[in-house]
C-alpha cells in the first residue's frame, strides 16, 4: 500500500445519513476474489433504478472520475466487510468526508489507503454546497480546501501516520516478535486456560 500526503481530485456529494456497508456493497457480491475488482459493485442497488438500469442522476454514475466522496453522518455503519472499502477504492476513491464513520469501516479504510476524514457537520454542508468541484486534501495538516471553503478534519494520530507511510501492519508487527513471544509465555503462565485442552 502506497503512502500519500496530498490528494487533489474531483469531489462529489452523496448527502445521505447512515450509508451502511450493505449499501456500499450488497452481500451477494462478496464471494468474488479481489483480483476481479469490486468497483462495479459499489452502491450497486442504490445507483440503479427499479428496472436495474444505472440512474443517470446518481452522483457516482454522473461523475465516474470522482475520487472524493462527501457523505452524511455515520458513513459505513454496519458490517465489518472490508469489501465495502474495496468497492470504494476500486472505483477510484481516495477519501470520504463525513461527520462520522462506523468504527470498523474507518479502520478498514485506513488499512487500504482510503482516508475517512471526519468533518464537523456544518463544514460538511459547506463542502457539499461546493460540489461537484475539485478538492485538495492535505493529510499532514488535516485540511481540505474546496474553492473558498477550508475545513479541518479529525483523524487519529495512528491512522494518519499509517496513511502517510503506507505501512503494512504485518511487516511492522514482525519487528515486535520478541515482545510477542515474551507476552505469550507470560500469558501461558497466568492464564493456561487460553489454550483449550
Amino acid at each position: 500500500m502506497a503512502g500519500w500526503t496530498h490528494h487533489d481530485g474531483q469531489a462529489i456529494s452523496l448527502p445521505l445519513d447512515n450509508v451502511d456497508t450493505d449499501q456500499l456493497i450488497p452481500a451477494r457480491f462478496m464471494s468474488i476474489p479481489r483480483a476481479q475488482g469490486y468497483g462495479g459493485h459499489l452502491l450497486y442497488d442504490l445507483r440503479r433504478d427499479e428496472a436495474g438500469d444505472l440512474r443517470s442522476d446518481f452522483p457516482v454514475n454522473r461523475w465516474p472520475n470522482a475520487s472524493i466522496l462527501i457523505a452524511g453522518r455515520n458513513f459505513g455503519c454496519g458490517s465489518s466487510r472490508e469489501a465495502a472499502v474495496y468497492a470504494l477504492v476500486d472505483a477510484g476513491f481516495r477519501a470520504v468526508i463525513a461527520p462520522g464513520f462506523g468504527d470498523i469501516f474507518a479502520g478498514n479504510a485506513v488499512n487500504n489507503g482510503l482516508l475517512p476524514a471526519q468533518v464537523e457537520t456544518d463544514m460538511v454542508a459547506a463542502l457539499t454546497a461546493a460540489t461537484p468541484g475539485t478538492a485538495q486534501i492535505d493529510l499532514e495538516n488535516r485540511r481540505i480546501v474546496m474553492g473558498d471553503v477550508q475545513a479541518e478534519f479529525a483523524l487519529g494520530d495512528a491512522a494518519r501516520t499509517k496513511l502517510i507511510n503506507g505501512w503494512d501492519d504485518i511487516d511492522l508487527t514482525r519487528a515486535e516478535a520478541e515482545r510477542i513471544t515474551a507476552y505469550r509465555a507470560t500469558r501461558a503462565q497466568s492464564a493456561p486456560w487460553v489454550w483449550p485442552g
Binding site: S79, S80, E82, V85, I104, N111, I170, T173, R174, I180
Partner: peptide, 15 residues
C-alpha cells in the same frame, strides 16, 4: 469485529 486486513494480521501474528 475486524476487517479482512486485520484478519490476515491476526492469522499471521496472533495480535
Amino acid at each position: 469485529g475486524i476487517g479482512a486486513t486485520e484478519v490476515a494480521h491476526v492469522l499471521a501474528t496472533q495480535t
